[in-house]
Structures are given as C-alpha cells and as structure tokens.
Design a protein around this nucleic acid. Structure first.
Length: 580
DNA sequence: GCCGTTTTCGGCCCGACTGTTTTCAGTCG
C-alpha cells in the first residue's frame, strides 16, 4: 500500500466540511481540520503509526478521530463519513471553496435553492436568485458571482519560485517610496512554502494613505482590485494578485508575526500567551491590564513569551514552539553556508549554457566548487552523454580547472537509475568520476515494491554519492511516485548517500517534511539547483528554504563542506567502493 | 473533538471587514 497520509488527511478535511455544512459545533469542526493538516504533514507513514498503536500520540488526535482513522486504514472506508454524506449533500461542500461563502451561506444556498455545485451557483447568481435569500443582497450576489467565476477558472497555487521574486520586486519598488519605512513579504512566502496561495506584503508607515497611494501607483500594477485605508489588492502585469497591509511602525512586529502565520502556529502561540495571562493579537502582546508589553519587533514578542525568536520557515506548529521555549531550535542552514553546487547541466546534455559559463556563474556566486552532472546515455531526450562523451568531457574539465584554480570543477554525472535498479554506466566509468548523482527518469509507474527495490539497489552501488529528486514529484501536480520512501531514506543514511533537496521551483524534492525525516534518520542532504542555465544557479535558494523548513542545519548538508573536506568525503567513498 | 504548571469539565485565538441590518451575522486571515 502506498503512503496514505494524504488520503487520511483528505478524509478528515471532508468530514470537517460536512460538519460545517451541518452547522456543527465550530470547535469540533476545527478539531477535524487540525487533525487533517497534522496527518497530511506527518513524515511518518500514518499506517505505520496505526500499526504501532500510537495514533493518539499524534497531537490533535484523540479517541474519536483515532477510531475513525483506524477504521479507514483497516477497511478503506469510514462509516461516520458515509453517514454524514447521507445527512448533508456532499456536493454542497464544493460551495465552501468560494470566498465569501462559508458554512451558513452554503447550507442556505443548498437548502433553499438546491445549489450543490459551482456551476449551479453561477447560474443562480446570473438569474439573480440569490439576492432575496435572508441576509443576502444585490451586492453579495455580485461578489459571489465574481468569486465563483474565479474559482471555476481556478488559477492554481503559485510556485514559490514565481511568487517570491514577484513579491520581492513589488516590495523593493514600494520600499523606495518615502512614505514607507519598511516593507516585506509575509504569509507562506516568508515561510518558504513550496506553493503559495496569495502574495501578502506588509509595510510600516506613519501615513498609511500615502503608502497605499504609492502602492497602487507602482508601474507593475495592471489593475487595482480593492483599496481601503490600510489594505489594498492589485493585479500585476503578469496577473498575479498582491495584497498589501499598512501598519503603524510600533505595531509592525506584531503584525508581521501575525500575518506570517502559519495559522496553526499562531493559534498555538496565542494559547501559550493566554496561559500566561497575556493576550496576543496583530497589534501586540498585552498583559492582563491591557497594557502593551511587546509589538515593535517579532523578537520582542517571542522574547516576552520567554522563548527564542523562531525562523519563519519553522512556524508550522510542528514542535518549534516547544523547541524555542527550551532554547533548542536548530541553527538552520543558510544560502551563505553553501560552498558549491553538486547538480547542474551544461549544453553537453540538455543545459542551455556551456561549462565555462556555468563555472563563471558559480565563481560569481562565491562558490569553491561545481559538479558538472550532465545526463547519462539512456536519457536520449536530454542528449545524455555516451561513455565516449563522458571521457571527452574530462579534457575540457581539466582545462577549466587549470584556468580557474583554486576553483574546482568536479567531474560528475546525473546517471539514470534504470528500471531494474542498475545504473546507466558501468562501474568502471563511474569510478573515473569525482562524484556520482543518480536519478529516476523513467518507469515512474512501477508498483511500489518494484520501485522501492529499484532505489534500494541503486543505493547499494558504492559509487553513488547523491540520490537526486528522490520522489520524482512535479508541482503542482505530478505526485510523488509510489515508493517506500522511509525505507529509501534509511538505506541512504546507512550507505552514507546524500539525499538531494532539488531547488527547481516545480520540484523542491525532497520536500520539507521528508527532508526533516531524512535528517532525523541521520542522512545528509544536498541542496542543489539542478540548473539548466547559468542564471538558474539561484534556484538553490528554494532548496535552502525547503531544507530550512525541514529543520536542516549546515552540518546536515553535504555541499556546505569546504572543498578539501568534500574531496576527502568523496575519496573515502571511492576507497570503500574499490574495497567492495 | 481535543485537552490539562489554573481544568477529566469547560473551555477552545482574535479582530476586521462586509453587507445586511437597525444591532450584528458571516466570513476571512
């Protein structure tokens, strides 16, 4: 069976939706929603947790939810959910996806007008049948019509690699306005999440109106969607929506903390504040008498709650609050810690730029080394290198090393892991290289046992130094292939093979949850760009953000090693390979 | 439904905005 965390999460989230439609106790609804998110984000396989009898050890999972999860894992169905589906029209749950429609309105739309789909909603709105419902009106009807159209034409979640540069571009432009004292992205962008819903910016200004006007007048703005005294939304020339909030400077830290989230982190933090008799809001931290005791900076707020400042990437309520209280937060790896990149392509295979251009770009980034890892022979679509071409590339790399010393160009390969788990070059060829990174590029659909055995076999090859993009996912929608990744991570840890966190915006593979699991199991990560052009070396930034979300420290990342220690590490592995 | 250095019962984050009302429900982040 494949990993079912996602399926269990979906089940619980669907239950939450149906309970909302029923008008159930909001706290019960929230309990299901929280459990859904926790289980979806759990690195450990939920089925394994169940078999170990530890479901109720999961935070937010008690007797009731554990029972439903157990039934689902045992039988593939959940009688409580089936029963709910008979009580409430499950199709009406789709209405909850439309902004401005919550449980009350969804239920009303279904009960009074029989609306149970976005399409039906659009038709009813067009026929002006919504405005006469209780507490509805013409304005609300218009808005629902607009939102429904937007949902129907659903623009997917943005990739971090698209959202972050846009957010920074707008923030920089806005920062040049004299009315703005500080401005930065908040929300899931600041947390470095792999995909982003909305681009949220926060600005500190004494005169909000002037800051607002500066925002809506930026050249990048194509359309102003909404503008109020402290909030505005615009559409960029590229049709990305950006929301700005303007905050008085002495509340900036509290607002930044609040609007960075995550929601679960904030709820947990506020609960902690409450236990101390404080109240935390986006305006600050207040004591029992209502006096504000912190708010200008985030540091102030976390400090007043007697904990360390928490890097935004960790704010997912996955143990960071307890760690911050005990002063045991990890020192997270940073882009500046990287000494080189171990996965890039050149125009010898499917890259855009020459080896020289890649090397010069790497030097410009301050790297000490770069591994050229062009594709192997079987990947014909990417002009994979024949054995002869691999050997030919050596002469070029020798020349580059002579020319750019002390910078070091490493002879590498991204060798295909063939369907049977053997590698695309014979060991004798791999032995000539400085570094071997290995990838699955074919036969993703193999059954779980086959694919797992295939990866385990590749990891047993003593020449393999790095396993690239271990799950094969492509955002937004090619899911991880079906593999026992826990077993793969354990094998990699045992074999000393590093696991890549690939920085291509549509990969980010391993993801944050698995990267953390890899670290827990004692495996090294490799944060690489997988650049196919010189300017893509910067994609390593997204690998770093993902690794940070996975609690990775510099010691946990192979390519933070200085050149001599990296070479020593690789040499040790080569000695082991020859002995084997 | 979950949970406990105030609680095994009685709480559960907090405030703004919008549009509908004539004092506030519903939704959002």
């Amino acid at each position: 069976m494949s990993r079912q965390n996602e399926a269990v999460g979906d089940l619980l989230a669907n239950i939450a939706k149906l309970l909302a439609l029923k008008g159930e106790n909001p706290f019960r609804i929230r309990a299901y929603g929280e459990a859904a998110r926790t289980i979806s984000a759990l690195a450990e396989d939920i089925a394994a947790v169940h078999h170990a009898g530890r479901l109720e050890d999961i935070p937010g999972v008690g007797e009731g939810i554990a029972g439903k999860v157990a039934e689902y894992l045992n039988t593939g169905r959940c009688s409580y959910y089936e029963q709910l589906k008979r009580q409430v029209a499950p199709a009406a749950a789709d209405l909850l996806d439309v902004p401005s429609i919550g449980p009350v309105r969804a239920k009303l739309l279904y009960d009074r007008l029989g609306i149970a789909s976005i399409e039906a909603l659009q038709q009813a709105a067009a026929a002006h049948r919504l405005r006469d419902l209780p507490r509805f009106g013409a304005k609300l009807e218009d808005r629902i019509a607009q939102e429904a159209a937007r949902v129907a034409a659903r623009t997917r979640r943005l990739l971090l690699g698209v959202a972050l540069p846009t957010a920074e571009e707008v923030a920089q432009a806005l920062g040049r306005s004299p009315a703005v004292r500080a401005v930065q992205p908040a929300g899931s962008i600041r947390r470095g999440k792999d995909t982003i819903g909305d681009i949220d910016l926060l600005a500190a200004a004494d005169a909000p109106r002037a800051a607002m006007d500066a925002f809506t007048a930026l050249p990048i703005v194509k359309e102003v969607l909404a503008q109020g005294p402290t909030r505005a939304s615009i559409l960029t020339q590229d049709d990305l929506q950006v929301d700005l909030r303007v905050i008085p400077p002495d509340e900036y830290g509290a607002a930044l903390q609040y609007f960075t989230g995550s929601k679960d982190h904030n709820i947990a933090l506020r609960t902690l504040a409450m236990a101390r008799g404080y109240k935390l809001s986006e305006y600050g931290l207040f004591d029992a008498s209502g006096r504000r005791i912190a708010g200008r900076t985030e540091d102030e707020i976390y400090g007043a709650l007697e904990m360390d400042w928490i890097p935004p990437e960790l704010r997912e309520n996955r143990g960071e609050l307890a760690a911050a209280q005990q002063h045991r937060l990890p020192t997270l790896v940073a882009e500046a810690d990287l000494r080189g990149d171990l996965h890039v392509h050149t125009d010898w295979s499917d890259g855009h730029d020459s080896p020289e251009q890649m090397v010069e770009a790497a030097i410009a980034r301050g790297y000490a080394y770069l591994a050229l890892t062009d594709h192997s022979r079987s990947l014909a679509v990417a002009h994979g290198l024949t054995v002869e071409r691999v050997r030919e590339q050596r002469h070029l790399i020798d020349r580059l090393n002579a020319c750019y010393a002390p910078f070091r160009v490493l002879r590498g390969t991204e060798v295909d892991i063939l369907p049977d788990g053997s590698l695309d070059y014979p060991d004798a060829v791999l032995a000539e290289l400085d570094i071997v990174t290995a990838s699955v590029h074919s036969a993703f659909q193999q059954p779980r046992e086959r694919l797992t055995a295939r990866l385990l076999r590749a990891l047993r090859n003593p020449y393999v130094d790095v396993l690239n993009h271990p799950t094969g996912r492509l955002l937004p929608r090619r899911p991880e292939y079906d593999v026992d990744l826990e077993a793969v991570l354990r094998a990699a840890a045992a074999a000393g093979v590093a696991l890549e966190v690939n920085g291509q915006p549509d990969r980010l593979d391993l993801d944050d949850v698995w990267a953390r699991r890899a670290g827990q199991l004692g495996a090294l990560l490799a944060c690489d760009s997988d650049a196919h052009a010189a300017r893509q070396l910067g994609y390593v930034r997204y690998a770093i953000l993902t690794a940070r979300r996975g609690w990775a420290s510099p010691q946990g990342v192979l390519n933070t090693l200085p050149l001599d220690r990296l070479l020593a590490h690789l040499a040790r592995r080569r000695v082991g390979a020859r002995v084997a």
